[in-house]
């Protein structure tokens, strides 16, 4: 690693809050990546009749366990449990609910308050809140990461082209962006989602239409500045072509600004997805999402565990990301020793 990056790493580490936030966030993210193994309505492992079954990976029918139907086994059914336990055993995950598992044995009408069975209670359709939070966290982060990746890609390319060539290209590009950013994003999203059944990728595409613009100005400014650097001029005098100059000499300059900006695009993307879900124009029905949980909290004010849990998870996630973003910004600050 070259000395500049070493110093940046030092700077990043010296911001304790951001450094620990990164560790904590990474832990949460990796933890939720394996959500299926933490919270599921299928056992992790079944030992039945001297053979091993992995229900999370493979699908088994009831008849595999000497049941009656050719449909997939419902391991939460006490009848199936009995059958399996007769000739072996089951290893359950920490939480025996998936995000869509409905608990039919609730002692009170849904939404049920926190209990030993459902740690944070259930939502108004009897689904476990902890399970939905774990899956919802994962989908929010994955969505935000993908969106950030693509909007950075588009933003950097557009900004680079505008900044590098300048002149008419820059002028036209800037005006298009101004008009485009004047469009009322949320209404457009709402209109568009009434045309198509929104899925993960549809939402990503629709939000990408507008989220790429944030970076353009930053990257463009960096390229405009770098255009007159002497080492860029020197590279041109060596005979390097435009693409080479942009990629090798100017992009690293813009990367600092880009990296500093990225955590904030990430939080923006999470906020965007959550608000769409809250309004009911987001992820398809039934998918675990924090926004939907907040909406339930609003609809069920007598069940405060819904709103509070969603709020805590969402604010924790955003706060961690902002702290990380601050540390990244510090790390790239040339004035900071």
């Amino acid at each position: 690693m070259n000395p500049i990056n070493q110093r940046r790493l030092e700077n990043f580490k010296s911001n304790r809050r951001g450094y620990w936030s990164l560790w904590f966030f990474s832990f949460l993210f990796i933890f939720t990546l394996f959500a299926e193994f933490i919270s599921n309505d299928k056992p992790l492992l079944i030992y039945y009749d001297n053979s091993v079954y992995l229900p999370i990976i493979n699908t088994y029918t009831e008849t595999d366990f000497e049941g009656d139907f050719e449909t997939e086994a419902d391991y939460r059914d006490s009848y199936i449990q009995e059958l399996i336990n007769k000739k072996g055993w089951m290893l359950w995950p920490m939480i025996r609910y998936s995000y869509k598992t409905i608990n039919y044995d609730l002692p009170v009408p849904a939404p049920a308050p926190p209990s030993l069975e459902n740690w944070l209670g259930t939502d108004d359709q009897g689904r476990d809140v902890v399970a939905r939070l774990i899956y919802g966290f994962r989908i929010s982060i994955l969505f935000a990461l993908t969106l950030t990746f693509f909007s950075t890609l588009v933003g950097v390319v557009v900004g680079a082209i505008q900044g590098f060539y300048g002149g008419k290209i820059d002028l036209v590009g800037q005006r298009i962006i101004e008009i485009w950013s004047g469009l009322p994003v949320l209404y457009l999203l709402i209109i568009l989602s009434s045309f198509v059944q929104p899925s993960f990728w549809w939402l990503l595409g629709i939000m990408l239409l507008f989220s790429w613009m944030g970076l353009v100005d930053v990257v463009r400014a960096e390229f405009l500045r770098a255009r007159n650097f002497e080492y860029v001029r020197a590279a041109r005098a060596l005979g390097l072509n435009n693409q080479g100059i942009m990629f090798k000499h100017m992009l690293p300059n813009a990367m600092v600004a880009t990296l500093t900006f990225m955590p904030f695009i990430l939080t923006g993307a999470i906020g965007g997805l959550t608000s769409l879900d809250f309004l009911g124009f987001g992820m398809p029905l039934g998918s675990p999402s924090l926004g939907e949980l907040i909406a339930q909290g609003k609809a069920n004010l007598h069940a405060p565990w819904l709103g509070i849990s969603a709020f805590v998870v969402l604010s924790l996630m955003l706060t961690l990301l902002v702290f990380i973003g601050e540390a990244v910004r510090d790390a790239f600050d040339p004035k900071k020793a």
Partner: peptide, 18 residues
């Protein structure tokens, strides 16, 4: 360009720091 080279004034600015 191989045959005509140029050396610039500012030795701090003309070398890419990265």
């Amino acid at each position: 360009r191989r045959q005509i080279q140029i050396v610039f004034q500012d030795p701090y600015g003309s070398l890419s720091p990265r």
